[in-house]
């Protein structure tokens, strides 16, 4: 990887001052994505600001029953947190579905929010990639697209967002807290990740000098009955072809509350609002589940290599909702 200056700030303020004065600086969390990309030459920061020593690793209760998760909480720790498991099981499950145990012990919440795509053409310096090199073109469009997105894509980029955690956060209406020397900001998760459009190099709403300090999960009773279903080519340790984060509340046979987000199919963690709208107030049955899924996938733009994802996503959404509805019956 390209040589860089290494900075280990003593506190958050020092970190913010450092990033404000070092152009081309990157924050380093668990390193699982950034170190990989630096070694591949995709990321080439001049300065690396190691924030792993900062005191941002607590999970705190919020007065309304929500939780505030420090940006440096490790994925494995967050997945094991009893409050997460009780109030937001889909988040714990999403974290546990991601990567490997070793990587989850390293990866942080803040880093996971900034995880970059696994598109092979993005990784390969010999391939054309608008995300890596704006204006260079996109070799993925007519390449192998099995892992690529079908929702939110553009003619410039069809890379899928790789994070499992972010799919759950999208379903849960999380809010990302960020700080810079200019002040604090709260960014709703739906606005945090950007669609590629003509500028796939711009992936998040985070400014270069901003540090993610926490993620807030609002109180959400419906999430107590939720799950994360990940479909992939291996039984473990693979990125999602399709994943579904879903919460469902059924009252008198009708959908009284629902949260639905998709992974593996979106250019960003995909909140399935069209499906949610279709479901809300309607029957909680198989036909309705499928109709809702189809409503969401109607906007899909597929390539020959990933056309199966519309059917797969539809089937997986329906299956996940069916299982939740069955749990409701049982419980």
């Amino acid at each position: 990887m390209k040589p860089f200056a290494y900075v280990k700030p003593a506190d958050v303020e020092a970190a913010l001052r450092a990033v404000a004065t070092e152009p081309g600086a990157k924050f380093l969390g668990g390193g699982t994505n950034l170190v990989d990309l630096m070694r591949e030459g995709v990321e080439r920061p001049d300065t690396v600001i190691d924030v792993t020593g900062l005191p941002l690793d607590a999970v705190d209760d919020l007065p309304d029953g929500g939780l505030r998760i420090g940006a440096l909480v490790r994925n494995s720790v967050l997945a094991a947190d009893p409050r997460i498991r009780a109030r937001y099981p889909m988040l714990s499950q999403a974290l546990l579905a991601g990567a490997s145990p070793q990587l989850r012990n390293m990866a942080t919440v803040g880093g996971n929010l900034l995880q970059r795509t696994r598109c092979a053409y993005f990784y390969d310096a010999a391939a054309a990639c608008n995300k890596r090199e704006p204006g260079a073109g996109c070799d993925a469009l007519d390449g192998f697209t099995r892992g690529h997105a079908v929702l939110g894509v553009s003619g410039s980029c069809i890379a899928a967002h790789p994070s499992d955690m972010c799919v759950a956060l999208a379903a849960l209406d999380a809010v990302v807290e960020v700080r810079s020397v200019r002040g604090d900001r709260r960014i709703p998760i739906g606005e945090f990740h950007l669609l590629p459009g003509d500028t796939p190099q711009n992936e998040t709403a985070l400014a270069p000098d901003e540090l993610i300090t926490a993620v807030e999960l609002p109180a959400l009773p419906v999430a107590a009955r939720s799950r994360y279903r990940k479909v992939r080519d291996r039984a473990s340790y693979a990125f999602a072809l399709v994943s579904v984060a879903a919460a469902l509340e059924v009252r008198d046979g009708a959908v009284a509350g629902v949260r639905l987000a998709l992974g593996g199919v979106g250019a960003k963690p995909w909140r399935a609002r069209a499906a949610e709208e279709a479901l809300l107030g309607g029957a909680a049955d198989e036909a309705a589940f499928r109709r809702a899924a189809e409503a969401e996938l109607a906007a899909a733009t597929v390539r020959p290599g990933n056309a199966f994802k519309t059917a797969l996503a539809t089937a997986t959404i329906a299956a996940t909702l069916r299982e939740l509805a069955r749990e409701e019956d049982a419980g």
Binding site: R118, G147, R234, S236, Y237
Partner: peptide, 8 residues
Amino acid sequence: EYHVPVHA
């Protein structure tokens, strides 16, 4: 990206 079998 080349998926050899894992334990699971």
